[in-house]
Design a protein around this nucleic acid. Structure first.
Length: 501
RNA sequence: GGGUGUGUAGCUCAGGCGGUAGAGCAGCGGCCUUUUAAGCCGUUGGUCGAAGGUUCGAAUCCUUCCACACUCACCA
């Protein structure tokens, strides 16, 4: 900058205006603020890790400037690349007067490329002694400045709303956030490896569905102009995966984004990622073994065979417990409610001093009771098995002849549900009856009851072999493995109310 | 939807017995060739979430609204 008058403002808008002016000035000086490419030979972390062999070698690095310390004719900056940070030393003597003048026009947040030689400063920090500097991207909108000393962050960027709304800033400034999403990607990769290795076929089924099904939830509705009809964003992919088994595939899985038009909280995001997998000729016992193996594989690869989650020590290394739902009721209620009907359950609610909605059906009463009285006790990985038929319209009746129960399990860890699975119902007559019962519940006001999918029923009539099937909430599994207590912290762009200025 | 809390400069936060705002960092102008929360001197910057109300006077008190966080409910 020349003999310009002193700028007197520093609101955000002023800073942006000033930086736009710098872009203009740089262009006039023959510097392209937005060039096309830059040759990188090393990542920051590689240089730090391999200092001995790289000392005094020429390297070329690129990254975003995260701090600048100008001391007259020499300066230190830290740049951050995808693998970490490294310090750069730049002096007017080494890079020349013009380049140094350009450097002094730059700001924290700019991307630069550096060619130079690896050295250590007198305090021992691995540093690149720059021999040339290239501006790679001029920042216009300033980033939060976070400083750190002895591992303690100062002025950390912690405002959760801003972090979620402006995730790119969160990622720039909070390196541990990077780690979570790298771990997320790894877990998804290990998941695919696990099923691919077992000859499961990865498939993709419709996200826009003319009839939604496969779970109890309210959907998002959208209007399809060309077909002049409503479509639904899927709440689950179950009914489509089963059609594929009818079609002759024997093992399929899909990692599916599902959408449920419900509340947002620590454990729920309206769009979330689940895996469902189905294998023919096996039952829920087999699937329990497979799920256990899967969870243990992910835990092992994550280096978390034991971990602390929500204050609980969780141990994945021992065999998971398997407990029947009504045994658990007996254990935690002290009452055998196997034969209870609606009035008995209502009486029990009263006795327990719990609020009860007189409109609740059997399934709702059982679900509530389980959530209230049992769930929070299930800390170590536990398969809850043998659910009432009334709350499991897609599961097969117990083979022992007990018509009230189905072959179903859910996996609980740290009081939360992680998996839901059945010996899949493949009797087309029974399936039709159960979905029709669900439809009746809908008419009675249960907005989450399932709807009848006629094409699905026709597929069942065509014949689906005996099958075991499982759904697992992957976001929650990722939360567990990264020890995060909010689903928002494992979803890059969690759902937020749109900003209204 | 209920409860609790938060919302003040770009970021992190003070202030809050009512007298229309402060700090650090960032920014801007200087000095500075091994610094690292660099330092030193100087300096700009705010419709105190929004709208009403009480008052001579509101960031501060009251009401409503908005957003977010935590939590309960809902959601297997």
């Amino acid at each position: 900058m020349s003999d310009e008058h002193q700028e007197k403002h520093s609101t955000l808008q002023d800073i942006i205006a000033l930086r736009k002016e710098k872009v203009h000035q740089l262009r006039e000086m023959g510097v392209n603020p937005y060039p096309y490419s830059f040759e990188v030979t090393h990542k920051s972390q590689e240089i730090i890790d391999n200092y001995e062999s790289l000392e005094n070698q020429e390297v070329s690095v690129a990254g975003r400037m995260m701090s600048i310390r100008i001391m007259g004719k020499a300066s230190f900056v830290h740049i951050m690349d995808g693998k970490g940070k490294i310090q750069i030393y730049l002096s007017q003597q080494d890079i020349g007067e013009k380049a140094y003048a350009i450097f002094k026009m730059l700001d924290i947040g700019d991307f630069i490329g550096i060619k130079g030689r690896v050295m250590k400063t007198r305090t021992g920090e691995v540093t690149i002694k720059g021999e040339s500097m290239t501006l790679l991207c001029k920042n216009i909108r300033p980033i939060p400045i976070v400083k750190e000393k002895d591992g303690v962050l100062h002025d950390a960027f912690r405002d959760k709303e801003l972090r979620y709304r402006k995730r790119y800033l969160d990622l720039i400034v909070n390196p541990d956030v990077h780690e979570i999403f790298i771990k997320r990607a790894a877990i998804l990769r290990w998941t695919r490896e696990f099923f691919d290795a077992r000859e499961y076929l990865e498939v993709e089924t419709p996200i826009l569905q003319p009839v939604y099904g496969g779970a109890n939830a309210r959907p998002f509705v959208t209007f399809y102009n060309a077909l002049d009809t409503n479509f639904y964003l899927r709440i689950a992919d179950e009914l489509y995966l089963k059609r594929l088994l009818v079609g002759g595939f024997e093992k399929v899985y899909e990692i599916s984004k599902n959408f449920r038009n419900e509340g947002i909280d620590r454990l729920h995001n309206p769009e979330f990622t689940a895996i469902e997998f189905y294998e023919v000729y096996v039952d829920y016992e087999y699937m329990m073994d497979l799920v256990e193996e899967y969870i243990q594989t992910i835990a092992e690869k994550s280096g978390k065979m034991t971990l602390t989650y929500e204050g609980h020590m969780i141990d994945f290394s021992v065999p998971f417990q398997r407990k029947a739902m009504f045994d658990l009721f007996e254990e935690f209620l002290g009452t055998d409610i196997r034969e209870y009907e609606i009035p008995d359950l209502q009486a029990l609610y009263k006795k327990l001093g719990r609020k009860v909605d007189s409109a609740w059906n059997y399934g709702q009463l059982i679900n509530e009771l389980f959530k209230e009285c049992v769930e929070s006790h299930l800390i170590q990985p536990t398969f809850v098995i043998d659910y009432p038929k009334a709350i499991s319209p897609l599961a097969k009746i117990k083979r022992d002849g007990n018509e009230r129960l189905v072959e179903r399990f859910e996996l609980y860890i740290a009081g939360n549900e992680y998996a839901n699975a059945f010996t899949e119902l493949n009797d087309p007559l029974d399936q039709r009856e159960r979905l029709e019962n669900q439809a009746k519940l809908r008419e009675l006001g249960d907005l989450e009851a399932q709807v009848v999918d006629e094409d699905f029923l026709q597929a069942m009539e065509t014949g689906m072999p005996p099958t075991g099937g499982v759904g697992i909430g992957l976001d929650r599994l990722i939360m567990l493995m990264t020890e995060q207590s909010s689903i928002k912290d494992v979803i890059l762009f969690p759902a937020m109310r749109p900003e209204t200025p």
